[in-house]
Simulated scan of single mutants.
Amino acid sequence: MANPKVRLETSKGDILVELFESEAPETVKNFLRYVDEEFYDGTIFHRVIKGFMVQGGGMDSQMRERDTHEPVKNEANNGVKNTRGTLAMARTMDPHSATAQFFINTVDNGFLNFKGENTQGWGYCVFGQVVEGIDAVDAMESERTRSFGYHQDVPADTISIISARRVED
């Protein structure tokens, strides 16, 4: 059975992602729940750090956080690495706090990989890979950034997620 795919229509271009259902089943189920609820429509990529990643999926254009479902258990111990073009769940210092926000690695970020089941070692769960549209990710990464309230690395020009939809093969 083929892995599920989701097309993110963004203001920088479309990004097609393949989700790693066998490696991160609960994380993929969680992400697809938000996709199916059209939760990501109208959210933004609110954090962009050149040479690191682009993060989005939880805030609107006014930097207001959307209400989310309960957090998902961290599945970063699945053997999948944080390499260029992979999708991973964003979270707080609590390793099991990821809800809707995700990021796309723009470079290999080995320091984000699972190292052990402790606060410092959990890492960030990779649950998918960009299969088309890495140029849109690169365009996001090159955006000028600014501070917005207590948020840093916010794109000066809003980068919107217009829609996120499942794609059938």
Rank of each mutant, 00 (worst) to 15 (best):
N30I: 05
N74P: 05
R146D: 08
Q62G: 13
P95W: 02
M53V: 05
F148Y: 08
I15K: 08
I49M: 06
Y40Q: 00
Q120G: 15
S22K: 13
E65W: 09
Y150M: 08
Y34P: 00
T43C: 08
A164R: 04
R146W: 12
F148T: 14
V154K: 02
L32S: 00
E132G: 00
V167Y: 04
F20T: 03
D60V: 04
R166D: 10
K115F: 00
K12E: 12
E9A: 05
I161K: 04
R7L: 11
E37P: 14
H151Y: 12
D94N: 14
E26R: 13
G79D: 01
F114C: 02
F111Q: 14
I159W: 06
L19F: 05
M53D: 07
V130T: 10
G110E: 05
G85H: 12
A2W: 05
D108K: 00
R146V: 15
A136N: 03
N82H: 03
N118G: 15
A156M: 07
V35H: 03
S11R: 02
D138I: 02
F127W: 02
L87S: 09
Y150W: 12
G123L: 06
E37R: 15
R144E: 15
L19T: 00
S97P: 05
E70G: 06
E26A: 14
I104Q: 08
N109C: 12
F102R: 03
V28K: 01
I134H: 06
I15A: 01
F102H: 04
A164M: 09
V72G: 01
M93T: 15
T106K: 12
E18D: 07
M1E: 15
T86V: 11
Q101A: 09
M63D: 10
K5Y: 07
V154I: 01
T27Q: 00
N3M: 02
Q152F: 09
M89T: 05
T27D: 00
M140H: 04
V137K: 06
F31R: 07
D14V: 03
V17R: 07
D169M: 12
T10H: 04
Q101T: 13
F39W: 10
M53N: 06
G133N: 09
A88M: 04
D60K: 06
L87D: 00
T92N: 14
L16R: 01
Q101R: 15
P155E: 07
T106A: 10
G116M: 14
D157H: 11
A90F: 01
V137C: 02
S160G: 09
N74H: 08
S22R: 13
G56I: 01
R47T: 15
M1Q: 13
F102V: 05
I161A: 01
H96W: 10
F114K: 08
V6S: 06
G128Q: 02
H96Q: 10
Q120V: 12
K29C: 08
T43E: 06
I49L: 03
T68I: 01
F127L: 09
G133L: 10
A136H: 05
E9H: 10
E132H: 05
G85E: 08
I15T: 08
K81Y: 11
A24C: 05
D135E: 15
T119S: 08
K5R: 04
G110D: 14
V130N: 10
D135F: 04
K115N: 13
F103Q: 06
N74M: 09
G116Q: 03
Q101L: 11
G56M: 03
H46F: 10
N77L: 00
